[in-house]
Nucleic acid binder design. Structure first.
Lengths: 144, 144
DNA sequence: TTCATATTTGTAATCATTATAAATCTGTAA
DNA sequence: TTACAGATTTATAATGATTACAAATATGAA
């Protein structure tokens, strides 16, 4: 526990984010639930039991500072909500059109490798990719 | 004029969409402004001069039926707005972080080619990719 | 301890989009 | 042509995610 919290404290310090209690708990949650790519609301719902006074605004403020400092990246697929990703390695995502869950997809995309490339005269700074389809769980549970 | 309108009428008929006046004008706009990847609001603003009674709801309804029938595809980059793309060929997009404009990027992505592939056990139905960076116009006008 | 500053909170506002129901248009049958 | 059913459009209100704002609270240095 304490050692974990120290680990998170160091992560925040390295990124120049003052390690307050709320920020530590939010960071802990997203690190330990990396696979879920949570929304702000999921983070809020998960923490309000332990921190009854926490507010959505704090979650948004915290996630926005995490985004600014590059601690998390936004996962944008639906156009109606932002999800957050702590995973550092370059990867893409798949959203299942049945269950709505988002999965990490580790693929070697030739475009994602060379940074600061130019295409058609535009400078490329970020490469994002996502897939839509049916996840393996939903494929298993029912045939189509 | 008339021939163009007939062309658009045929496009709608082929997709089983009843060619009403509003739908024809909206289709005309997105075909002739393909490069702008307009939002619903951009379409509304462009047409309200010629069709003073048109409403945002009609634009949304129309675009949703165009989406359902596969006449347009959604371009989702910001997470706060949906843009529409009439371009039929497979391609990706770049959004400039200075001017916000969205550009078509024609690239051969190996992932985008084979349809209905499986990755990690998930069935892939759609492949979407987008880039963020600085467009060539903004690169030209100022150094960084 | 005190004060300035940063953080958190609660509320209201905003923005894109959808829901709803009334009004209008369209095409067809009589 | 008339009348009517069904589709389309409109105006308005509602929703959901996110941000703005200002007051309350916590923090850290002098």
């Amino acid at each position: 526990m304490i050692t974990n919290m120290n680990k998170f404290k160091n992560i925040l310090k390295q990124k120049n984010i003052k390690p307050t209690y709320h920020r530590l708990k939010i960071l802990e949650y997203i690190v330990e639930n990396m696979g879920t790519h949570p929304t702000a609301e999921m983070i809020y719902d998960a923490l309000k039991g332990e921190i009854p006074t926490i507010s959505m605004t704090t979650v948004y403020n915290t996630m926005n500072s995490f985004l600014d400092k590059g601690l998390v990246t936004p996962v944008i697929i639906t156009g109606t909500e932002v999800r957050y990703d702590y995973n550092k390695s370059h990867h893409h995502h798949l959203q299942c059109r049945k269950c709505g869950k988002i999965f990490d997809i580790d693929i070697e995309c030739p475009l994602a490798l060379g940074k600061k490339k130019f295409i058609n005269g535009h400078r490329i700074e970020e490469v994002h990719g996502y897939f839509k389809g049916i996840c393996k769980n939903c494929l298993k549970s029912k045939k189509e």
